[in-house]
Design a protein around this nucleic acid. Structure first.
Length: 220
DNA sequence: CACCAGGCAAGTA
DNA sequence: TACTTGCATGGT
């Protein structure tokens, strides 16, 4: 499939999802730090569980870089318990704050002033931040044009023949980058709509859902 | 009861 | 490089 065809189809899919589901208002968080913490907490975890953890942190006044840097890891782990993997995630949040404090004097606005690709490599060097979490931070906390790929994205777009089943993160991301305009709003909404579609209709054991709106476009 | 959820790192060969 | 395993709660 050539680029212009893929580009037209991708945009058609986006428009259809937007018409069907409407704006998703991502990221569901009020501050950049809350978005970053949420991005770590939601790793392989249902968002509802993350909300409970975030709520606990808010109650304790811990969604500030200074407070979060000082709270004992053990206390942090107890508060984020509902989100699962709480020991490892507490360490990951601590790792991010150590990086922020060490390289940017604890200032998110300084961190996000860095070139996007340079910053992505820096984030990937933080233990516990992988490609999806890094891109989520860049796009949803930083407003940078990073297209986020997640398990739903690979599942849905490989089932419809756009990606190999075993496509790597970068291969999947390249497909979207090559076939979409570099538009932050579009990247934001498209990823959110893919997750919405995945939650509503594309359970992992639902190989080809006859209700999938993408099927109508891709198969005529 | 089994399976899944907006991943990632570390170990093995 | 390509697999495998541990991490863990809460909903369906």
């Amino acid at each position: 499939m050539n680029k212009s065809n893929s580009s037209e189809i991708l945009l058609s899919i986006y428009k259809l999802l937007y018409k069907k589901f409407g704006p998703q208002h991502w990221w569901p968080g009020e501050t950049r730090l809350e978005i970053i913490v949420g991005a770590i907490l939601t790793q392989n975890t249902a968002w509802g569980n993350v909300e409970k953890a975030i709520s606990n942190l808010k109650k304790e006044g811990l969604l500030k870089a200074g407070a979060l840097s000082r709270v004992p890891k053990k206390t942090l782990a107890r508060l984020i318990r509902p989100s699962g993997y709480y020991n490892i995630k507490a360490q990951r949040i601590k790792n991010f704050l150590s990086f922020l404090n060490r390289d940017y004097n604890g200032k998110l606005h300084k961190m996000f002033a860095t070139d996007m690709h340079k910053l992505k490599n820096e984030l990937l060097a933080v233990k516990g931040i992988g490609p999806e979490t890094a891109d989520s931070i860049l796009l949803y906390a930083g407003g940078k044009p990073a297209f986020v790929v997640d398990a739903y994205t690979k599942r849905i777009f490989s089932r419809h023949g756009f990606l190999k089943e075993d496509a790597s993160y970068d291969e999947a991301q390249d497909f979207f980058k090559m076939n979409l305009p570099l538009d932050i709003r579009l990247f934001n909404e498209f990823h959110a709509l893919i997750v919405k579609l995945g939650k509503d209709l594309c359970a992992s054991k639902n190989p080809l859902c006859d209700k999938c709106p993408i099927g109508r476009i891709n198969n005529g």
